[in-house]
Design a protein around this nucleic acid. Structure first.
Lengths: 153, 153
DNA sequence: TGCAATTGGTTTCATTTGTAACTATAACGA
DNA sequence: TCGTTATAGTTACAAATGAAACCAATTGCA
């Protein structure tokens, strides 16, 4: 039997995972790194959380959504959306009215202040995305698109 | 000027992000979905959090690491590692001793109980990874590896 | 109608997480 | 050798998150 040293690579009989080659782990690191880099840009400038920004981003694209529809499109749960909206409305960044034909539903739109923030943050976010993609050549970028399409389908 | 309807796709002058084509967003969805699927497997069976599992996984590969080294290898911060270790040690899944030459450092190893859990969870995690990769053909898998290598470099 | 079931959304409470401060040991330099 | 600085790890407190209970409006249907 061999001597055991500090941080011995563990024994074959246990078949430990190699995190550095394990897809879920690598994706998690990559995703967190990128999201955090973008968040760093706007959190200090606008006192905006990631969930709030996501809500604003979908309201920028689809005006008049209800909270539930925002939740669908952001893949966030409705409690998180409700809380983000409470802060956004309180900060005057989102206007909330009641739906004409269904008083349970809210009708959500960015306010002028909300649009101003959006128009500041969206280009920064896009620039960060470009920075990431700049590490790849055109062929790799195409494959990445295709692969993500398949994995997310 | 055109009529405005419910959830109008917002105006060109604001150039809103299209989340469904925005890389950081798509990566986040993919990563969370995969990690959660794996976590569902072991959380109920072993009452194990994601952070605890990550700590166990690196200790399976590198026996005798210190808490700081675990933090490095898991890309978690030291507080998260400290808390995960507190639970793992309390549950008898990790053995913690003090380093001979530096009394600040801990020396961490999976216990027999820890190895038993590892040997149950690791194959499940690998199986889930295979399920994900099964959505891709061999060529796509090679590109994905290459792309992740570049983006994580 | 009228009443049960559903839906949109909020609140409450427990747990998790992040940040900063803290303790203890070790390393470094005058 | 003493005092300063750095490092390993934990603790304390605040903020974020998740699950379940909850309220109000709507729908479905006997």
């Amino acid at each position: 039997m061999s001597l055991r040293h500090k941080s011995t690579p563990a024994r074959a009989e246990h078949a430990p995972l190699q995190l550095e080659h394990f897809l879920p782990y690598r994706l998690s690191i990559l995703s967190n790194t990128i999201s955090q880099t973008i968040a760093d840009d706007y959190q200090s400038r606008h006192d905006l959380s990631v969930t709030e920004w996501r809500v604003m981003a979908v309201l920028a694209r689809f005006e008049g959504l209800s909270a539930r529809e925002v939740a669908e499109r952001t893949a966030m749960d409705k409690v998180a959306v409700s809380r983000a909206l409470a802060r956004l409305v309180a900060a005057g960044r989102v206007d909330r009215t009641v739906h004409d034909n269904d008083k349970r539903r809210s009708v959500l739109k960015l306010s002028a202040a909300g649009w101003a923030i959006h128009d500041d943050v969206a280009p920064m976010a896009r620039a960060r995305e470009r920075e990431v993609l700049a590490k790849l050549d055109a062929e790799e970028r195409q494959w990445l698109e295709r692969i993500l399409d398949k994995l997310l389908a």
